[in-house]
């Protein structure tokens, strides 16, 4: 599992997760992912376009990320998951956080609707 980070428009945190969010993959990135969800009113995009697999441990990390951001009155979206990964997210009750489209559009959506979460 590889995590890459970039800022969009200066204050939207774009985290890209490439690989499998299984036990090994989740343990490899969880501290860094949660660190990016901190601060005041964080705006976070977790890009899942290159995430092939999410197990329950990976879902825990995504749920924890959403809770962390929500507790700080921020906004967060799960960007462009594949169909199987989206299916797992939907079963876990996270469908409302899925955003499909360009990352800039997602960033704009976070800006215009900070209560998306």
């Amino acid at each position: 599992m590889q995590l890459s980070f970039a800022e969009i428009d200066g204050n939207v945190r774009h985290l890209k997760l490439a690989g499998n969010l299984d036990i090994a993959g989740t343990l490899a990135v969880e501290t860094k992912v949660l660190a990016h969800c901190g601060g005041e009113q964080p705006r976070v995009l977790i890009d899942l376009a290159e995430t092939r697999f999410v197990s329950s441990l990976g879902l825990r990390l995504l749920l924890q990320s959403i809770k962390t951001v929500a507790a700080r009155s921020g906004s967060i979206s799960l960007l462009n998951p594949s169909i199987p990964v989206a299916g797992a997210l939907e079963i876990a009750g996270l469908a409302a956080y899925i955003f499909r489209g360009a990352e800039t559009a997602a960033a704009a959506a976070l800006k215009s609707n900070p209560s998306v979460s």
Partner: peptide
């Protein structure tokens, strides 16, 4: 999985999936 996010338990998803 319909609980508000702040009340959502973190675990228990594996068997459910």
């Amino acid at each position: 999985t319909n609980l508000p996010i702040e009340e959502r338990p973190i675990g228990g998803l594996g068997i459910h999936m």
